[in-house]
Amino acid sequence: MTRLNRIGIALAAVVGLLVLTAGPALADNSMSVAAPGEAGIGDIVPVLVSVTEDGSPVTGVVVVLRRNATFAGVSGYVEIARATTSDEGAADLSYVQRGAAQTSELRVEVLDFDVAQLDFAVTSVGEAEQIFEPEVGLNLPGLGGWMLIALIGGLWTIILSTVLRLIVVSTDGDESSTGVPPRRRLLPFVLSGMVGLIAIVLVTVLVRNPATHANLDGPGESDRVPHSHLAEITPFNGPGLDEAYVELTGDALVDGARAFFGLGCASCHGLDAESGVVGGDIDSVVRDGFDEFLSAVRKGPEGMPKYTADAFSEEELIAIHTYLATVDGE
């Protein structure tokens, strides 16, 4: 609990008390809310609501706190707390300040009770600290890569020392011998070199250790082509992705949708023809009319395969064009 919260609670208590004592003087149904004006991200924000009817507390009505939010093109007031009023007509709607917007636009509503909803706002203050961290686990100090590096490095140092001792073997007996066998020094050096090299490689591997909780590199060439940016969310209502063969029914809209998904157009151009993993937005081609559309399909611009009449018949393409033009027009 931050100091802010304590102040908030005190404030709320005072306001609540005022509301309760002043209750009988007020006429009709009314609702009052006590909440701090600002809070830090992640703090519990105390919101106390009291509901009165002709000055007397209302018991057992459901009070809901909602926050104005937008995500992925969908917006609305989302419920963040719900409570039933007590004997004193008070409800505790405390919530956690999480919203990304600087100001949380909040709304209190009483369900099945004739009182106007009440809007207020709580401004986020302080540092925007990350609440959720994707990393979990324990880090025991000293246990880890450096210990392994010391272990492997130590082992290989000992191995290297045994091989280096072969150099001593190969150089011993110089003076004593009459006919020194040739090539005797080659192997110890090759072996020492090998051991040294492998040791360096292994330790290097350990030091270089890639991060697995890594940020991705900045947007590169391999990012998705002009992205499937759905301005507004259109819940998928295609007639079915499972139909590999299209039997035309005569209804251009139905046939077109079936063909668009069944023949695989949607694989590239996205479920709503506004581009997917591969293909681009085809709205403009559709708008230019059927002839343009037909020639684009047959010619295959920008890396798209040329689809001959064997692949897609003209009837199918007419249906697809009709369907896309309708969808686009909506």
Partner: peptide, 14 residues
């Protein structure tokens, strides 16, 4: 989870 928001494409929820 960070902003505490989710959607199924139709409604937005906490």
């Amino acid at each position: 989870l960070e902003e505490d928001i989710a959607t199924n494409g139709e409604v937005v929820v906490s």
